[in-house]
């Protein structure tokens, strides 16, 4: 039994005086794709920020790849895609990705490969601010992927992407999890995307209220439609018993 890639114990976080994470316990197995779903404001982004180690926490422990989250050595191993693009608008796609490549000690070739992978090769010489929102997200994703990290934390990476590209990106996420053993934690508010994860975590008001494989969640909520399952779980007065 290998050690967990992420181990969270009794994590409590307040933001602006409000309780955002209410005693989270979680283990994520290495080399898996874990989907984090839940209504907006349920604490998904905050939980991801804790894993990356950029969130101030009230109490609890977050261990990533055997080290406390956010420690210097981990920053070579973990890369983080924020929800709103954090690329430089006045730089081209190529310049942005090469910049992040340099921060992670990767080469220009690595940069070209990930630009190709997110489908931006034809746009690589264009200024990022002239791209569409979806293209900016992809440029940002390339900046996160270029690190070739052991752990990838993605906050809504497929928002604003067309279905074809969404499918390609998800295939890519699975490929790097399988082939390179990368652990991926990805948030989404689209349930049919979460269906492609090895495991789904459903959050509501700072707690994880369901934690299972997509198949088991369908079975427990007695529906084939994951969106319906999502609604049933969210609206349930008491969380469905967890297995």
């Amino acid at each position: 039994m290998s050690e967990s890639a992420v181990r969270i114990r009794d994590l409590v976080v307040y933001r602006g005086g409000a309780l955002v994470l209410d005693g989270i316990d979680l283990d994520v197995a290495p080399g898996t794709v874990t989907g984090l779903v839940g209504p907006s404001g349920s604490g998904k982004t905050t939980l991801l920020r804790c894993v990356v180690g950029v969130q101030k926490i009230k109490s609890g422990r977050v261990t990533v790849l055997g080290r406390p989250a956010g420690t210097a050595a981990l920053r070579h191993e973990v890369s983080y895609l924020t929800q709103s693009p954090t690329v430089y608008g006045d730089l081209t796609v190529e310049e942005n990705v090469r910049h992040f490549a340099a921060l992670y000690r990767r080469s220009k070739r690595d940069a070209a490969i990930v630009i190709e992978r997110v489908g931006l090769s034809p746009k690589s010489r264009q200024l990022v601010r002239k791209l569409s929102g979806g293209q900016q997200t992809r440029a940002n994703l390339a900046c996160a992927l270029v690190a070739a990290p052991r752990m990838l934390v993605l906050d809504e990476p497929t928002v604003g992407q067309d279905p074809l590209l969404r499918r390609e990106l998800w295939t890519h996420f699975h490929n790097i999890a399988r082939a390179e053993g990368t652990t991926i934690v990805v948030s989404s508010h689209v349930m049919d995307e979460a269906a492609r994860c090895d495991r789904i975590l459903l959050m509501r008001t700072g707690k994880i209220i369901a934690d299972d494989t997509p198949e088991m969640i369908r079975k427990e909520t007695q529906t084939d439609d994951l969106d319906e399952a999502f609604l049933r779980l969210i609206e349930a007065p008491v969380a469905v018993p967890q297995v």
Binding site: R75, Y80, T82, Y88
Partner: peptide, 14 residues
């Protein structure tokens, strides 16, 4: 404000 500071500090950059 753009979030690039947080993004950079999440990389190996000090």
């Amino acid at each position: 404000n753009r979030g690039t500071l947080e993004a950079i500090l999440a990389t190996p950059a000090s």
